[in-house]
Amino acid sequence: MFASVRTYRFSPVYIQEIAEKIQDMFVPLLEQMEGFVSYDWITTPDGQGIGVCVFRDEEGLRESIHLAAEFRKAHFSHIGMTTPEITIGNVGAHGSINEQMSPTNTKRPEDRPTH
């Protein structure tokens, strides 16, 4: 697997707008791409955003970087979001939990009612 970490800067005023557009518009585009594994968007209170993207192959990852650049130009040019610093590399270790076992939903599937 291959991953990229893209670090952006912007005014903290836009944190919510950016997160909503990424969740509602950008993530669905990534999910349609061949080899997509995961995407996370992380923000800091001072206006830093970090996109962490994982693909099964380097080709898909590089395509996602181009997609992200076009998305930034189309949707965030009005807010002054910077061109990102990009780090690309092989994924040396990976872990995840089942969505049903996330911290906000701690009931195990077998503990949930079936009706």
Rank of each mutant, 00 (worst) to 15 (best):
A3P: 01
I50H: 02
T106N: 12
V91P: 06
P113S: 13
T114H: 08
G60P: 02
Y14N: 07
I88A: 03
L67M: 04
Q100D: 15
V27W: 04
V5W: 05
M1N: 04
N105A: 13
H75W: 09
P45H: 09
I88P: 00
S4G: 03
M33R: 06
G92A: 15
S4Y: 00
R72Y: 01
N105R: 11
F26G: 00
A3D: 01
H78N: 12
E58F: 01
W41H: 13
V91H: 10
E70I: 06
P113F: 09
P28G: 07
Q48C: 11
T83K: 08
D57R: 13
E110Y: 12
A74T: 10
Y8I: 01
D24A: 14
S102F: 05
P109S: 07
I65D: 01
G60K: 00
E70W: 06
T7E: 10
T104F: 14
K21N: 05
G35F: 01
S96H: 15
V37R: 03
E63D: 11
A93T: 12
I86C: 00
F76G: 04
I42Y: 12
V13P: 02
T114K: 10
E85T: 10
H75Y: 11
L61T: 02
M1G: 11
M101S: 11
R72M: 05
H78R: 11
P84A: 04
D40K: 12
E110V: 09
A68T: 03
L29I: 08
T43C: 03
P28C: 07
E58N: 02
G47C: 08
E99C: 10
G60S: 07
P45V: 09
G80F: 04
H94N: 15
A3M: 05
I15Y: 05
T44M: 08
